[in-house]
């Protein structure tokens, strides 16, 4: 990553992701039309109540007995909140709200949930990471484990860490989630990408998180 991209991330005035986080803050405090509960009504001041939370996600969800990532946690919470807006995967609102929640963990070391019930899902995520897919027959690991630092055409191959999401990507000229980024790579190797929110994605996220620990959360990061 170039020095100028790093500088853009480091300076909150220059970092375009901070605009999304600001939008997320407004959503956090917004009451549904006609009144009712906002996020803040239950969770209070996010700078206190959400501090360090994103660093622990994905977490085990008691209701579904599966791992759940931060965006699906927000969606599940919204589903229980009368009048709350529907926020589909990858919608501007959901990305903004999760960027705001993620921002409250900025600088916190990524801390995988030690719950042993997550272990089989994490192992499945690792298997997905290591399995060659698509017409081009490439695995995530072939590039991001074995060839990080190399150049795919002009692009420097990163180690594939998830600790900056949701982030602002210059190539997108916009914000996006880790699932959006994973879909980019899957499409690149000419593989069929699962739909947003699919179990495969959450399991991959879970593995990536344990692989990245204890890197600090950088949300909202800026990437080329």
């Amino acid at each position: 990553m170039s020095a100028s991209t790093q500088a853009m991330q480091r300076d909150d005035v220059q970092n375009p992701g901070m605009l999304a986080a600001g939008q997320g803050e407004a959503l956090w405090n917004a009451q549904p039309p006609g009144g009712g509960q906002s996020c803040a009504s239950c969770h209070g001041d996010a700078t206190a109540s959400m501090k360090g939370v994103a660093a622990r996600y994905p977490a085990f969800d008691e209701a579904t007995r599966r791992p759940i990532d931060l965006q699906d946690r927000i969606r599940a919470c919204n589903a229980r909140r009368p009048g709350a807006p529907d926020m589909p995967h990858e919608s501007e609102e959901l990305v903004a709200l999760s960027a705001y929640v993620g921002l409250q963990s900025r600088g916190t070391p990524t801390a995988p949930d030690p719950d042993p019930r997550l272990a089989p899902f994490r192992a499945r995520g690792q298997a997905l990471f290591e399995r060659p897919i698509g017409q081009l027959n490439l695995s995530c690991a072939a590039c991001h484990d074995a060839r990080a630092g190399g150049r795919l055409a002009g692009a420097l191959i990163p180690q594939g860490h998830p600790n900056g999401y949701p982030l602002y990507r210059l190539e997108w000229q916009g914000m996006g989630s880790l699932q959006r980024r994973l879909r980019n790579c899957m499409t690149g190797v000419r593989a069929e990408a699962p739909p947003f929110g699919a179990p495969d994605f959450v399991e991959l996220e879970l593995y990536l998180q344990s692989r990245a620990a204890p890197l600090a959360v950088e949300t909202p990061a800026v990437r080329p």
């Binding site: 399995r131 060659p132 897919i133 698509g134 017409q135 081009l136 027959n137 490439l138 060839r147 069929e192």
Partner: peptide, 24 residues
């Protein structure tokens, strides 16, 4: 190898529908 198989369609997984059973 990381070299894709340019003229073989067997032994591949999760190939996108538009590329399925087609060689590169």
């Amino acid at each position: 190898t990381i070299m894709p198989p340019y003229f073989e369609t067997t032994g591949l997984h999760r190939v996108a529908p538009e590329f399925r059973d087609k060689t590169i």
